[in-house]
């Protein structure tokens, strides 16, 4: 379990991360989502012990990263935003070195390096200079490095950046497969990625946590309403009346003609469950339905809504404090 408690980080006077707290449970993939510059990388650098925090605590499986760094770091595999590879080394040589500084010795080292290369599919590159590898391969070498030492926790900062679409799928599958042995924090600004891989997301913007929940809950929180699309053949009036007669739904909001006597009816409903009722009502009236689908507000919309707005001022005093810190000419004495 990774616990992050009231973590704060200042760069000079700028707060990059403001008092954030969250917990990552064992064998969970937590998505860390936010626009560029939201404080994702800073947070991850603090969790892994690269940067010290300005305030707050990070506990890695119960070990404080600030108080007992060497023990805590042993439990973490980290893939930073830019893969930390030496251009002048060969892939295998580099991985052996990385295993060495993590304190892995002898036969164990060899086995782990082979295993990591196998998992990332870079075995055929083992004797190439890293300098000559493409961005995607460098990324994978960096990822392989994170797996060495079989750490309990994997911190992956944008692991699929720079990969081509088929590699992205491979890496996602790899991450899913790592779940059974590791606990993973994955950051990304790509929604599909988070949606595909993570169970829970933390959405961060301007250094503050905006939301922290499972993806399904987040989408539900946008309002439970769904839009049901039904493509059916038959008389328009009759079908509309038939649909409207079902309890628990609003009226037909839109009818889109699709062809000869075929229309798509858009219905807004409280939830997905009414779909069955509508269908059975239509079937009872001998109307043939060729397509049924439902749309819900996507995570994308949730994301945009949560991250777009600047943080709200809690009260006037906060606003004044901010003005004071932003304006160097502001003189307290004048008050």
């Amino acid at each position: 379990m990774i616990e992050i408690k009231n973590l704060t980080k200042f760069y000079g006077n700028n707060a990059a991360v403001k008092n954030i707290s969250f917990t990552v449970k064992d064998h969970e993939i937590l998505g860390f989502l936010g626009p560029n510059g939201a404080g994702k990388s800073t947070t991850m650098n603090i969790i892994t012990g690269y940067l010290p925090s300005s305030g707050g605590k990070v506990l890695i499986g119960g070990t404080d990263i600030a108080e007992n760094p060497s023990e805590a770091k042993r439990k973490i595999g980290y893939l930073p935003e830019i893969p930390p590879v030496y251009p002048d080394m060969k892939v295998k040589e580099y991985l052996k070195f990385a295993a060495g500084i993590k304190g892995i010795k002898g036969a164990e080292k060899k086995a782990q390096v082979e295993d990591a290369m196998e998992k990332l599919k870079i075995k055929d590159m083992e004797n190439r200079l890293i300098r000559n590898l493409s961005k995607g391969y460098k990324q994978r070498v960096g990822f392989a490095q994170a797996l060495l030492g079989n750490p309990e926790y994997l911190i992956l900062d944008e692991p699929t950046v720079g990969l081509d679409p088929s590699q992205v799928v491979e890496v996602r599958n790899l991450i899913m497969s790592l779940k059974k042995d590791h606990t993973i924090i994955l950051s990304s600004h790509i929604l599909q990625e988070i949606q595909a891989v993570c169970e829970r997301v933390v959405i961060i913007s301007h250094g503050e946590i905006r939301a922290m929940d499972t993806i399904k809950h987040l989408e539900d929180s946008m309002g439970t309403s769904v839009v049901i699309n039904i493509k059916a053949e038959g008389d328009r009036e009759k079908i509309s009346a038939c649909i409207s007669s079902v309890a628990g739904i609003g009226s037909v909001t839109e009818v889109i003609p699709e062809g000869d006597n075929v229309n798509t009816y858009k219905i807004s409903a409280e939830n997905d469950d009414v779909r069955k009722d509508i269908l059975s009502a239509l079937v009872k009236n001998d109307i043939s339905v060729s397509e049924v689908s439902s749309e819900r507000p996507s995570l994308e919309e949730v994301f945009v809504q949560l991250t777009a707005s600047a943080p709200k001022k809690r009260d006037l005093r906060d606003l004044l404090n901010e003005m004071e810190s932003e304006n160097p000419y502001y003189d307290k004495e004048e008050q």
């Binding site: 650098n45 012990g49 760094p69 770091k73 930390p84 030496y86 251009p87």
Partner: peptide, 14 residues
């Protein structure tokens, strides 16, 4: 410059 410092600093080495 190359960002490899992170590798060293997040390893168990002090």
């Amino acid at each position: 410059r190359t960002g490899t410092e992170i590798l060293l600093m997040t390893s168990p080495l002090n």
